[in-house]
Write a protein that binds this DNA or RNA. Structure first.
Lengths: 225, 225
DNA sequence: CCCTATTAATTAGGATTCCTAACTTTATGA
DNA sequence: TCATAAAGTTAGGAATCCTAATTAATAGGG
């Protein structure tokens, strides 16, 4: 994968080569020179910028409401997902952190009176998170944190968005298959999904799925095993 | 923007309404019910998942090489951008953190012998970051942190990627215009960019730019003022 | 039925991130 | 010249996030 570094890049990268091998560098999506020749690198770089946007927007909202980013993420997740998924273990997988990290954040949310622990499940080691009244109130105020982005997306025409979504949803499913994203709830990985003669079909809704019918976070999702 | 909550969502969301107003909630991109009817919400949700991917991949690499995520980001940025941009103030804007946060990370990178401070600039308050030999060596090892994503993107066909990139690049520029992303180096915001009769043109390279010629991080970028 | 292995969550301890506020030094500009 | 702004640091503190070890409960053989 190594390739010779063009002269102008050596200047840009402040590379002062100390031997011949230094002229060969590995391909990186964050090397602008790479981006010039490889569309996948360009897109990777762009998606990294979008990732910065989420970081920024989440922090901005966090400061306004007096919570931390992970606390907001937990609150929003609990508000919109079935109880079965609202436990420490699942949240750790969902947000790619360890259980102690979730445990800490939950402790604070609990202390602030925003969530309750519900031990009524069959497994006595585990509990389910539930929003309190003030928790629900707060969630309603933070659910729009990504709206500056969503609004800009909304300005584009339907056909363009539909194509974009198709690529994005397939990408997310492939990230799951290769183990990068440990959880997801897309149609492609659901046991109710069926591909009949090149067409996507949901056996639960009993209907054919168009590109934009595909869900990334279906409430009825169940893992295929 | 409020709308009535469908009955099945009340179950899913564990909403135990305590008064009439509770039946009306604000639209949120993180509400799966919203995602069913609004493509912009679906895409926003999807991009948030991609954002998690970057977080995961960066942390995974960080553990392997014994650096922190922000330290890796700084190292990669310095490796591939002109000295002019490699100072504390710019890095803070680039990665959406405060100057003390960058200052801390730089102190550690410096202590580890990975970067040097170059005070030779005209402004004596400021300095420029430069990679040391071992810094460059390390950067070569971390530049591929996003490759699990880049590889999956690379499997798609050129035409699909080209369309995806067009939407993505316009989105990034609009994020900059609306002040969400404070820095970017896309053609659209560059002083060498010209739009002649519906066609993109670079006055520096003196050539017409096709969709995928548009750069997100051009080394020659200069702000239009 | 017991016993081991696994799983859920927590605690403890520590490095780092990240903030705000205050400060030093240098540059800018009226 | 002098006020203002800007670059970076320091100080202090909350939160993130990790690993490793712990407690308690469940699950699966034999």
């Amino acid at each position: 994968m190594g390739y010779p570094i063009p002269a102008h890049l050596i200047r840009i990268a402040n590379l002062v080569p100390f031997n011949e091998r230094d002229f060969v560098m590995k391909s990186s999506a964050f090397n602008p020179n790479m981006q010039e020749e490889d569309l996948a690198s360009k897109i990777t770089f762009g998606l990294e910028r979008i990732s910065e946007v989420f970081k920024t927007l989440l922090w901005a909202k966090a400061k306004v409401v007096g919570l931390s980013p992970i606390q907001i993420q937990i609150g929003l997740f609990v508000a919109y997902h079935r109880a079965e998924l609202c436990n420490v273990s699942h949240l750790a997988k969902e947000f790619n952190v360890t259980k102690p990290t979730i445990s800490d954040a939950v402790k604070i949310l609990n202390k602030k009176g925003l969530i309750d622990k519900d031990y009524s499940a069959s497994d006595q080691r585990s509990y389910t998170l539930q929003l309190t009244d003030s928790g629900r109130k707060l969630v309603r105020e933070v659910g729009d944190f990504a709206d500056p982005l969503r609004d800009l997306i909304g300005h584009k025409d339907e056909a363009e968005l539909s194509r974009f979504f198709t690529t994005l949803s397939e990408l997310i499913y492939s990230l799951n298959r290769t183990g990068v994203l440990t959880v997801q709830r897309t149609c492609f990985g659901c046991k109710f999904y069926d591909k009949e003669s090149e067409e996507d079909y949901c056996k639960l809704l009993q209907k054919k799925l168009s590109n934009s019918d595909i869900r990334l976070d279906c409430p009825e999702f169940e893992n295929r095993n």
